[in-house]
Design a protein around this nucleic acid. Structure first.
Lengths: 98, 98
DNA sequence: TATGAAATTTGCAAAGTATCAAACTAATCT
DNA sequence: AGATTAGTTTGATACTTTGCAAATTTCATA
């Protein structure tokens, strides 16, 4: 991953609402064995106070940066963190250490 | 550091030129015992291809996010990574993983 | 002190972003 | 089928961002 790509990913995380959205997805992914590690977007729409269109837009940006994947699960949309991308970003930021 | 603050820092790193600038400062900080771990901005101005005013502006944004500190060293400006902020960001992104 | 080099400030243009309302599509439920 | 719920698309508006050119400041040194 080069600098341009890394910047793109960081940009996706650079807006408070979008970062919150991502972190919430990540939290659900870790925590919820009940829901099979999947994060239901519907639940998030309630907790962030921005409208559904804006959430939709932000989600698309996260997906576009390769940070999350989404798929329909019946009536609902679920999201999952793309660990490969996220790990790579963390590794790049860690730089010289190790 | 809360989400808003974290977003602010990530935003500072979210533009390719600004990220490059930061990474270059970080690299110099690690590598150069010759120059006392200090990064001379003058040298960077040559290697990035944007003008001095824009560099100045970007540098201020990095400083404003708490990612670097700068000070004049005679005729030149030198920059240093603020490790405290940077470490905190990495820790926050690392989340559950230790 | 006058000249020059390094960096900053200001003002501006072009491009990009966040958000919403309204209209739409997709899936479910009665 | 008709009504309902979840999410998307479109179009608009207000705001932010990047970058440059020109003018200015700061410092060093001839």
């Amino acid at each position: 991953m080069d600098t341009v790509q890394l910047a793109k990913v960081l940009k996706a995380l650079s807006h408070p609402n979008r970062l919150e959205l991502f972190l919430e997805i990540a939290r659900q992914n870790e925590a919820s064995f009940e829901s099979g590690g999947e994060c239901f977007i519907t639940d998030i729409i309630g907790s962030l106070n921005i409208g559904a269109p804006t959430i939709s837009h932000h989600l698309k940006e996260l997906a576009n940066a390769g940070l999350v994947t989404t798929r329909r699960r019946g009536k609902y949309l679920v999201a999952k963190v793309n660990k490969e991308t996220f790990e790579r970003v963390k590794r790049l930021l860690a730089m010289g250490e190790d």
